[in-house]
Structures are given as C-alpha cells and as structure tokens.
C-alpha cells in the first residue's frame, strides 16, 4: 500500500495516533455523511467527504503537519481524527478532534487523543499559540477544550459556526 511517510506515531495509554491511510476511508465516510457532523459543518455528500479525506493527505504533504488517526490498541479500530490544521497561509493553526464512532463516546478517548495531539503540535511545530473552534451546543467538545487548558477568547466568533466559542491554547498550557 502507498502511504504517507515520515509522520509521527503517538502512543497514549489506550490509543495509537498514526498516519491516515486509505483503509480509513469507509469509517471516515460513514462519519462524514452522518448526523454526527452536526457540530462540525453538517453531513457531507460522498464526494465532499472524499475530498476532505484526501485533503488530510495533501495537508500533510504540503504543510508538514495535519490529522492523525486514533486507533484503539485493544480492538485495532480507527476511532477518529485528531490534529492541527491550517486553512490559510499565515492564518491560525486550529486544533481539531472528531470521534467517528458513536460507540467510542463517553470513554475519554477523545480527550486522551486530543491531549497527545496537542502536546505533539506545540512541541513539533514550535508554536506559541493555537485555536480551536467549538459549536455552541457541542458540550463534549467544550469539555475537551477546557480540559486541555483552552481559554475562551472573549467576543471572538468561530469561522465555521453561527454561534460558538473560539478557544486559545498556549504552549506550556495546562495539558
């Protein structure tokens, strides 16, 4: 199989965060086309889901960072994508986390993966700051942002949602 090379692998207590691979597509597609995306832009068509999936790879190739896939070491299942992304050159780097599988919720997996990803992002990229955007009603994601030491930037509106919060993360913050 053709793969991305040179990407980090991060190990947490229960998870391995590794490079995206072609075999992640069916699971990602099912997530991206589902109602689980209500807080991250809504369900996509299959074409748009595939475009986003392939863009994970191109983002790594061109920017040298991007999304990793969290895998449950106990089952080998891919659980979701976690990683820094940057839409625009010179724009903020956004920390992102998404659990693909509903059955993986409520077990602390997203926090565990997001924490490892955030530590890696600051260490590897030498950043001093990063952002995360969270929809108003996405309680689980607000909880993660807060556990990772994110501070709400007063008055700043998310780019992606009508209403929500933008969190600021600083290097060396409370992870």
């Amino acid at each position: 199989m053709i793969t991305l090379t040179g990407l980090p692998t991060l190990a947490t207590e229960r998870l391995t965060l590794r490079a995206p691979q072609a075999s992640d597509w069916p699971t990602f597609r099912d997530f991206a086309m589902s109602a689980r995306t209500a807080f991250v832009g809504g369900a996509k068509t299959q074409d748009k889901a595939a475009e986003k999936f392939a863009a994970f790879f191109g983002h790594w190739v061109m920017r040298g960072f991007g999304r990793l896939i969290a895998e449950d070491r106990a089952t080998g299942l891919a659980l979701g994508h976690f990683g820094p992304m940057q839409w625009l050159d010179g724009g903020p780097i956004e920390l992102t986390w998404s659990l693909w599988r509903p059955e993986a919720e409520g077990r602390g997996f997203a926090t565990e993966a997001a924490r490892a990803m955030t530590e890696w992002t600051f260490a590897a990229l030498g950043l001093t700051a990063a952002h995360a955007e969270v929809h108003r009603d996405n309680a689980a994601s607000h909880a993660i942002a807060q556990k990772l030491g994110g501070q709400v930037i007063a008055g700043q509106k998310p780019t992606w949602f009508e209403d929500g919060a933008v969190y600021h993360f600083a290097a060396g913050g409370a992870l």
Binding site: A22, F57, G58, V61, L88
Partner: peptide, 20 residues
C-alpha cells in the same frame, strides 16, 4: 473562495500518497 480552493488543492495533492 480561498478555503474551498485549498480543500480541493489539498485533496488533489493528497491523491499522490493515496493513489500513486
């Protein structure tokens, strides 16, 4: 717009590792 253009461009470049 620029964001949509980035998504397309990144997905096309991403074909190299995905498809060869």
């Amino acid at each position: 717009d620029r964001r949509a253009a980035w998504r397309i461009f990144a997905s096309e470049v991403g074909q190299w590792p995905l498809m060869g």
